[in-house]
Design a protein around this nucleic acid. Structure first.
Lengths: 182, 182
DNA sequence: ACTTGCATGTAAGTGGTTACATGATTGG
DNA sequence: CCAATCATGTAACCACTTACATGCAAGT
């Protein structure tokens, strides 16, 4: 699932600038399962325009830079639906934390505690963000379904961690780091 | 968390060949949160050897190709622990399926049903794989912790999907794809 | 005075993947 | 006879990230 498709998915619902698309990827409802930076969004939009899948118009604003608003074309809508009909790329979950956790016994306790707390907070933050979206206007049934799925996942992660984080922390080296050479 | 660190993490516990490292990434206990292909593992091992973090010896076998067994050095162990002590890269979860799900209403019902079933089966498969590791020898406390964490996540994903997949399927277009032009 | 938000874009670099090249052995 | 497993490695390619370049306005 490349950035081009991601842009089409957002433009399917409403016109947007590159900047707004990026904001949706950072703070929007799909922030927990997609990612994209400016460096990939702007070239993606330019290419989509070359291919006739989107059009753009510039809008000057006072006090703010001119923005370039993109709209999806009929060809863009078709291409997007066609893309969704093809086999999906695999879901990927990569967790440096879980790799870290496997070696908890090699590391100082404070560090393990800090990392596990960060990990927990990540989920708490994301769950709260998703909660925020549920109350909002203009959220259709499918969006709500996706948000609820995310919520369910964040919730177990939180609960599981709260119940079991101390097991991991007690596996860590009790002595402070500097005494390791003794 | 790059492939070099991944190789060190495996070699920390036991000697291995590039081929075996890749197998552990595909079928091993950390298969659900890391990934690496031959094209990244072999160059990574070569570079680790250049840097003196691993050593290798060749072993001829009859009926099978000669293999190159890598061992971690003391410098490699230190580098690995040092790497774990540094700030962790963010966890990443990317799900083309969830993007797909948001547009269920645009797609034919059979397709949505197929994709959601594939998604469910992915979790069932992974949970079964993790169950298999729990019964095994030589699994230390931290590994068991990580496996249990994974199990917990797979389990809710499964249960949530089984309970809610039909909601998503009913959002899909009831008519078959080919009649879309009518 | 400094940072943040708005806004677009490019260039260099990275960290991979995919496909290719090679080849013996075993099992269906 | 074909596919899969074992086994190593390279080269071309790709998608994306990071840092850079630019600049004004509003808030702290």
């Amino acid at each position: 699932m490349n950035v081009r498709t991601l842009c089409l998915s957002i433009l399917y619902n409403e016109d947007a600038t590159g900047y707004e698309i990026r904001r949706q990827c950072t703070d929007g409802e799909c922030a927990y399962f997609v990612e994209a930076s400016f460096g990939s969004i702007y070239p993606a939009l330019a290419k989509l325009e070359d291919d006739g899948l989107v059009t753009s118009r510039s809008q000057t604003q006072d006090g703010k830079p001119t923005k370039k608003i993109y709209s999806i074309t009929e060809a863009g809508r078709l291409a997007f639906v066609h893309h969704l009909s093809e086999p999906l790329a695999p879901n990927m979950f990569r967790s440096p934390f879980l790799l870290f956790a496997r070696y908890a016994h090699l590391l100082p306790q404070e560090l393990v505690e800090e990392r596990v707390t960060d990990f927990l907070n990540e989920f708490t933050g994301k769950r709260e963000m998703l909660d925020g979206f549920l109350g909002k206007h203009g959220t259709n049934a499918a969006d709500t379904w996706v948000i609820n799925y995310g919520r369910a996942m964040m919730e177990v992660a939180e609960n599981h961690l709260r119940s079991h984080m101390h097991e991991l922390i007690t596996m860590a080296r009790a002595e402070p780091k500097k005494e390791a050479a003794e």
